[in-house]
């Protein structure tokens, strides 16, 4: 089963993270699924290889979750990485996706933390709604990915890997 995101949910997510970006004065905000795939981002990401960033963030989170279990915690829902110039604040949402805020000295950890709490509530509701839709629609084929899509994908694969 795939994690499917439809237009309305996507724009609702974007609105929330854009608001978070503005409220915190952060550099950028990214939303990543737990498999390490970037869902969306906002802010200045021109200096970042977002594909690698998403994969490593998910791995970072997965490893830290296991550390939590080793010390008897169910999970560490929040991670904070402090650098000389830039910092990362990473928050688990609905046990399904990972919110990452990249920020520097133009804002403060306290402000980021407070604003992320608001955004987390909103994103929680959106993600849970998406999961419900996926569950209720699980017997149906994925829209748009019909037999023609699969055939064309196979042709592309033949071409790319020949």
């Amino acid at each position: 089963m795939s994690f499917q995101i439809f237009e309305n949910d996507f724009w609702a997510i974007n609105e929330t993270i854009t608001k978070l970006l503005k409220m915190t004065n952060a550099i950028s905000v990214l939303l990543i699924d737990k498999a390490g795939q970037l869902i969306t981002s906002t802010g200045n990401i021109s200096q970042i290889d977002t594909t690698s960033f998403a994969s490593l963030s998910a791995a970072d989170f997965a490893a830290t979750s296991q550390l939590a279990k080793l010390v008897g915690e169910n999970n560490f829902n929040t991670l904070f990485h402090q650098g000389e110039n830039q910092n990362l604040y990473i928050q688990l949402i609905a046990n399904k996706v990972i919110l990452v805020v990249i920020f520097d000295s133009r804002t403060s950890l306290g402000l980021v933390r407070v604003r992320i709490k608001h955004a987390t509530d909103e994103l929680n509701a959106i993600i849970l709604d998406i999961m419900e839709k996926i569950d209720s629609n699980k017997d149906n084929n994925v829209i748009g990915l019909d037999i023609d899509f699969k055939k064309q994908a196979e042709n592309e694969l033949d071409e790319l890997f020949k």
């Binding site: 089963m1 795939s2 994690f3 499917q4 995101i5 439809f6 237009e7 949910d9 996507f10 724009w11 699924d33 498999a35 795939q37 869902i39 969306t40 994925v142 829209i143 748009g144 990915l145």
Partner: peptide
């Protein structure tokens, strides 16, 4: 789990 994003048209 594959990710299918209908808004950004990405799989």
């Amino acid at each position: 789990m594959s990710l299918i994003n209908y808004a950004s048209r990405e799989i």
